[in-house]
């Protein structure tokens, strides 16, 4: 049996993503909450992409796992860090020198790629939730608003307010002040998104062409808009920003 499919699995802190490649063509993707059982989430994602394409698991030649839960995938042939996988996945869409900003559930990454595709350097956020998906989850909880509705709410804002605090706990205290002052909800949510963008700009000068990826960007395009406004330049986004790491893992799986 020809095994020309490769699978990339990105077991992230919040979500598990899969990309199935047939040669170099992306033929299926899946997405699940990682939950408390990384292995089960990875298994379910694999089953989903296999069913989508109508093949059997045996037809997958190689699987590479990445993300915080990468070592929990016992059927993976290899594990590679999400930093390398995001870089590979992004370079596939933008094959030139780029600065990648990945906003994940628990951490942010800035990865600088040279024209050749080699990685020049990378940074991760400090041990702090500021600017990550976890920050937005906290804000959504505080506002008793579904996480999935934040983007739509922010888009309705007609004015601007600021969240100046660095710390998530302090920012939540600021929220109380804004709520008490009768600030409209959309403006508060927009301030939270602007805060995410600012934390990113504090990580790196973000030189050259900037590409944003990750689950926060996939579900909240306003983050890109606000970050671009603060940066003063256009920020590009791949077609499937939450699956960039899984795509990179699947590409790496084709190489051996």
């Amino acid at each position: 049996m020809a095994k020309h499919y490769t699978l990339g699995l990105d077991v992230g802190a919040s979500a598990t993503k899969a990309v199935l490649l047939d040669g170099d063509v992306d033929v299926a993707r899946s997405l699940r909450k990682s939950g408390a059982n990384f292995a089960a989430a990875a298994q379910a994602c694999r089953e989903e992409v296999v069913e989508t394409v109508g093949i059997s698991v045996d037809e997958i030649g190689r699987t590479v796992s990445t993300g915080y839960g990468r070592r929990s995938v016992d059927f993976a042939d290899n594990t590679v860090t999400e930093i390398t996988c995001h870089a590979r996945g992004c370079y596939a869409s933008f094959p030139h020198a780029i600065t990648i900003v990945d906003i994940g559930g628990q951490d942010n990454k800035v990865i600088v790629i040279e024209d050749s595709g080699d990685r020049k350097n990378f940074k991760m956020n400090r041990k702090c939730a500021a600017g990550t998906g976890a920050f937005l989850e906290e804000i959504a909880n505080s506002l008793d608003t579904p996480l999935s509705s934040l983007n739509e709410l922010a888009a309705q804002a007609t004015g601007d307010v600021e969240l100046g605090s660095f710390c998530t706990v302090f920012a939540k205290t600021e929220l109380l002040k804004l709520i008490a002052a009768g600030t409209p909800l959309p403006e508060i949510v927009k301030a939270a998104f602007r805060s995410v963008g600012r934390r990113i700009l504090e990580m790196d000068p973000l030189q050259g062409d900037v590409v944003m990826t990750g689950g926060v960007v996939a579900h909240n395009p306003i983050v890109v808009e606000l970050a671009a406004e603060a940066l003063g330049r256009v920020i590009q986004v791949p077609d499937h920003p939450q699956h960039t790491g899984a795509l990179g893992a699947a590409i790496i799986a084709t190489e051996k």
Binding site: T81, E82, D107, D118, R119, F122
Partner: peptide, 17 residues
């Protein structure tokens, strides 16, 4: 976990180079 990921990614970067 964060330190381990960074160190592994650094080694991947240097080994690739």
């Amino acid at each position: 976990e964060q330190a381990k990921t960074q160190i592994e990614a650094f080694v991947e970067q240097l080994t690739g180079r």
